[in-house]
Write a protein that binds this DNA or RNA. Structure first.
Lengths: 99, 99
DNA sequence: TGTATATTTAGATGACTATCTAAATATTAT
DNA sequence: ATAATATTTAGATAGTCATCTAAATATACA
């Protein structure tokens, strides 16, 4: 997953809210929706983007589908971003950019 | 500046390269261009986006325009992003999102 | 003053985004 | 089986994005 894909996934306020919610606990779609002013299809779309960015996962529980943060991936990604933001990095290997 | 604006500014690989270059030193547009496979107008556009996100500044030096990282802002922004990425954050005040 | 160099602005294009309503799918309960 | 609940998919729309070429602006040099 490229840094750009990750940054893009994080660049929408509704997706940021979703992640903030899922940091606390696993949640069903309609439960998440209660915190956002968007329709369920739109939320579904955002969840799909976060899923493709590998930041969250889902599992079915009866009628509901529960979404949760991909903890380990999220941490990896955070590391990567922090490294990118770091000013002390000596050799930015420009040719090695994934993008 | 909202987190979304910042994430968006960071979500393009060419802009990431520009920032990585400017972390090292102040650079003229054509100097930066040498590292990227885009035309000067496109680079100019990216510089404008980074500038609007308050991540970089420019000053004229003769014919050239030198771009540099807004060090203090860049650090502030990094802090903000790191806080957002932090899993230990207790109370994500969802209603207080800038976005 | 005219020419070369550096950068930005204007205008266009095709791709992608967030959003919606309506319809489809899947599960549970009666 | 039928109805209710939960979520996703389909299809449309208006807006934004990265990119380009061509033209404009600004500075320096001869």
């Amino acid at each position: 997953m490229s840094l750009s894909t990750t940054f893009h996934a994080l660049s929408d306020p509704n997706r940021q809210k979703v992640l903030d919610l899922l940091k606390k606990k696993e949640m069903a779609v309609s439960e998440i929706a209660a915190y956002l002013n968007i329709t369920l299809p739109t939320l579904s779309h955002h969840l799909d983007i976060l899923k493709r960015a590998n930041l969250i996962s889902s599992r079915r529980d009866g009628q509901r589908i529960l979404y949760s943060l991909n903890l380990s991936v999220f941490e990896e990604v955070s590391e990567k971003i922090i490294k990118f933001l770091s000013l002390k990095s000596k050799k930015p290997k420009l040719d090695n950019f994934e993008d």
